[in-house]
Design a protein around this nucleic acid. Structure first.
Length: 587
RNA sequence: GGGACCGUGGUGUAGUUGGUUAACACGCCGGCCUGUCAAGCCGGAGAUCGCGGGUUCAAGUCCCGUCGGUCCCGCCA
């Protein structure tokens, strides 16, 4: 039989098509053989349509009987209104069915290694090995289509705002600083290597020098670092750069895009401006540079109240310039000894010397520590922490940084334990004024917290020689539900400052010249002030899709040991290939 | 580099203090069945328990190593 042309998709037919002759093509999703009548759910990416095979239909009935899961077939037949008590409300095509008159089996299929049912759980290992089958499942189809829509929304948004999408090289030079590069050996230049871009950072700055004052790109980036649920060796950014702007211009542009996303993807109306916290505030209040604001549990400092109390752990800590801070967990005074011990262990594992839990009864602490604190102090603490009867205070006294980190971790943990995070709740915020530098103990030098092209804040410039660690940067992150989804900065655009920055990072003139000479040169030919931001596209898609791993929004991801279980990458290569590249293996 | 959890028919799991035929659900195959839509009923096949070693009279179970998966710390400008 001649293959007829597909006339409709499996998600398309409605009552209005009643009586029409149609040809559908797709995969056999399920077969219900009643001995007499046979039903087939035919599936494609648009939906499912029920196909009916009547025993009276002769040849086609026999064919229908021989169908198995995942066979690819073409069905020719007519659309028929279903009997009124046989409708399927769960199916968009559930008011009709297609009565088969002819079918062609386009391809048979082995029984798939796992069921495609949404509610049948399959290990990720098996899913990844047979990813092409896994991608047939509705969850993955939904996620990839969502991702596609997000890409289209971004393209339209940036195009509307006069941005130009420009592709930058995938083969670039390896640069110091930042993540480990993926290297690509050169055959033509034996012994030399390209690097895959960690981000198109330098290229987009050069495009600013070229006068493309609004650039964006949806682009793959590569970082050879260890993986996480939200980190893959290759991932996608929406990369953005603008000239003649300041932070505020970036904020309002990004807020415009986020409003589009929230509306079009989630159906939620948000309004600008998005809440802001400085990095310092975020660390002090939430113990994180990417705080999850879907719940409270804010950290409260108690230094002044406990400075002169009799509890040495607290008073000594204050005397030694540490921090005594706590969070108040509503209703958690009912925690058992064991539950409290688990929290104490958690705090210790995160580097704290200890954790003091204090239960609150009607009007006072319910703690054997009461004797160390005056009634007045106990009442002041209650008041400051907003504690009431039945609450549990978790107090940490330690070096300020440790204290913040530990309480920040506890905050997240308690929120999970207590189910304080509602699904379908979205909390966006800007974290601004990051420190410019960070001291790296291993390397014994300052390293750029964002990247070496980030501009210091003007008002902190005077500190750059005397107290570089205190200099704040014109750098900002966008945080959604405790996940960093974008980060950027206003860049340095003057050669002198850039040189100074390299010097601070202990990068010699020679190395700076060698590795970044092209950028420094460019700055001498009329570089405009500029800045930008890059979105973690996979992470955003993950959050919007309600998933816990970016693997669920990536068609062909790697495992946590950076392998592709489907095609077996990475793999060995032939001697011939190595020889051409001038490479000798030592492993 | 470090830590935690996991690996048992095709898939997901159970398997007690080590003990004789490794259980269940789904799927698969066959039979019955003309209105199901996660169809139903009956029957059947299918597992050297990731791999290697050790302890033991005896190992899916305990120990060591290894491979693979997941999560976390370090790392990720």
């Amino acid at each position: 039989m001649n293959l007829k042309k597909r006339t409709h998709t499996c998600g398309e037919l409605r009552l209005e098509h009643n009586g029409e002759k149609v040809t559908l093509m797709g995969w056999v999703d399920r077969q219900r053989d009643h001995g007499g009548i046979i039903f087939i759910d035919l599936r494609d990416r648009y939906g499912k349509t029920q196909i009916v095979f009547n025993p009276s239909a002769g040849e086609v009935y026999k064919s229908g009987k021989s169908l198995r899961s995942e066979f690819v077939i073409a069905v020719h037949g007519f659309v028929e209104k279903r009997p009124s008590d046989m409708l399927n409300e769960n199916l968009s095509t559930g008011k009709i069915e297609v009565v088969a008159e002819e079918i062609e089996i386009l391809n048979s299929a082995k029984t798939p290694p796992f069921e495609l049912d949404e509610d049948v759980e399959v290990s990720e290992e098996i899913r990844l090995k047979y990813r092409y089958i896994d991608l047939r499942r509705s969850m993955m189809q939904r996620n990839l289509i969502l991702r596609h829509r997000m890409a289209q929304i971004a393209r339209q948004f940036f195009d509307t705002h006069n941005f130009v999408e420009i592709e930058t090289p995938m083969l670039m030079r390896s640069t110091p600083e930042g993540a480990r590069d993926y290297l690509v050996p050169s055959r033509v230049q034996n012994g030399k290597f390209y690097a895959l871009p960690q981000s198109p950072q330098t290229y987009k700055q050069l495009l600013m020098v070229s006068g493309f004052d609004r650039y964006f790109q949806i682009v793959k980036c590569f970082r050879d670092e260890d993986l996480r649920a939200d980190r893959q060796p290759e991932f996608t950014q929406i990369d953005v750069e603008m000239s003649f702007i300041n932070q505020e211009d970036i904020y309002s542009l990004v807020e415009g895009l986020m409003i589009e996303y929230m509306q079009q993807i989630l159906g939620i109306n948000i309004s600008a401006p998005i809440q802001r916290l400085t990095w310092f505030e975020a660390m002090e209040k939430y113990g994180s540079d990417k705080p999850d604001l879907r719940f409270g549990l804010e950290m409260v400092e108690l230094n002044d109240l406990v400075a002169s109390c009799d509890f040495k752990v607290f008073s000594d800590c204050v005397a030694n310039k540490g921090a005594v801070k706590g969070i108040c967990v509503p209703g958690a005074a009912s925690y058992s000894r064991k539950q409290q011990d688990l929290l104490i262990d958690f705090a210790k594992q995160n580097g704290a010397k200890g954790l003091v839990p204090i239960k609150i009864s009607d009007d006072d602490w319910q703690s054997n520590l009461n004797k160390f604190f005056s009634m007045e102090v106990r009442q002041d603490v209650l008041k400051r922490m907003g504690a009431k009867a039945g609450d549990l205070l978790l107090i940490v006294a330690d070096e300020r940084e440790t204290c913040n980190n530990v309480l920040g971790g506890l905050r997240l943990r308690v929120a999970q334990d207590e189910s304080m995070i509602q699904e379908n709740q979205y909390a966006l915020l800007w974290v601004t004024d990051f420190p410019l530098l960070e001291y790296d103990n291993e390397e014994g030098r300052y390293v750029a917290r964002h990247h070496p092209f980030t501009s210091p804040k003007d008002e902190d410039l005077y500190l750059i020689d005397t107290e570089p660690g205190a200099v704040r940067a014109k750098a900002y992150d966008l945080v959604l539900n405790g996940t960093e989804i974008a980060g950027g900065s206003i860049r340095i655009y003057k050669k002198e400052l850039q040189q100074k920055m390299f010097k601070l990072l202990n990068i010699s003139d020679e190395e700076a010249n060698n590795k970044f000479g092209f950028l420094m040169d460019a700055f001498e030919y009329g570089a405009p002030p500029h800045g930008g931001i890059a979105f973690g596209f996979d992470r955003m898609a993950m959050l919007f899709a309600g998933r816990k791993s970016i693997r669920d929004v990536i068609a062909f991801p790697k495992t946590s040991s950076a392998m592709s279980l489907m095609d077996g990458a990475p793999s060995g290569v032939s001697e011939k290939q190595l020889k051409e590249l001038g490479i000798k293996l030592t492993v």
